[in-house]
Amino acid sequence: MTARIVAVINQKGGVGKTTTSVNLTHALARLGKKVTVIDLDPQSHLAVSLGVVSPQTTGIDEVMLEHCNLQQQLIPVRQNLNLIVAGPRLQEIEQLNEGGARRGDLLRKALHENLDDQDFVFIDCPPSSGVLVANALFAADEILVPMTSDYLALQGLSHLMGTIKKFESALKKHYKFSLVMSRYIATRRISKDVLNTLQKYFPGQILATTIRETALLAECPSFGKTIFEYRPGCRSARDFTALAKDFLEGKVM
């Protein structure tokens, strides 16, 4: 079995990358899928959101810099859900300025023929477009882009699509591409206009469930809990369960 490798990516900050990574992976795990999630953001917010707060714990940084065994870095955080933390040296990779294109291939090599017992490997990317994101794009088969429904997010998406097309051309691969509407405020007119614009350019690529903006989603990281633990059965928990089913079944708008 080969794991599907999914990069959760958007160079714009605050669009819900980590919230999506935490709660979608937990939702998939709750549906019985074996999932590993990698924190590729040196800020380590994914790990904190899952209740792992030891800043000195090594993780994907040692795998990429020192070729340490990936399996040894797995932390089982929930049933069916493993975490690989960022590690204190991850920022060094962002600043690598030697090694040409090979600098971008560190993660792909580390994942190669590893984690084959998993259904999914998710990579939570930093809000940037440097060497770490390049590593995620080298490694991933699929790209999941959380999008907020505001104008500047559209602008950022335009830049991101240019980047993705460059990678597809240079790496001669074609990503499976999905958008997830995150932090959605249905009562705003701009939300609908942004969504209409996206539907025009990404027909069949926007996952059917929108994740609505709620206070609970903002609160649960401070307790190291996913939404399913913080407030089971709430509207956001239902959104993420529905999103996980959309993701598995390919259900789109």
Binding site: Y151, L157, S158, T197
Partner: peptide
């Protein structure tokens, strides 16, 4: 529409 300049137009 509230979308003035469409930054994704280049894709089409």
């Amino acid at each position: 529409s509230l979308i003035g300049y469409d930054p994704l137009a280049w894709m089409h």
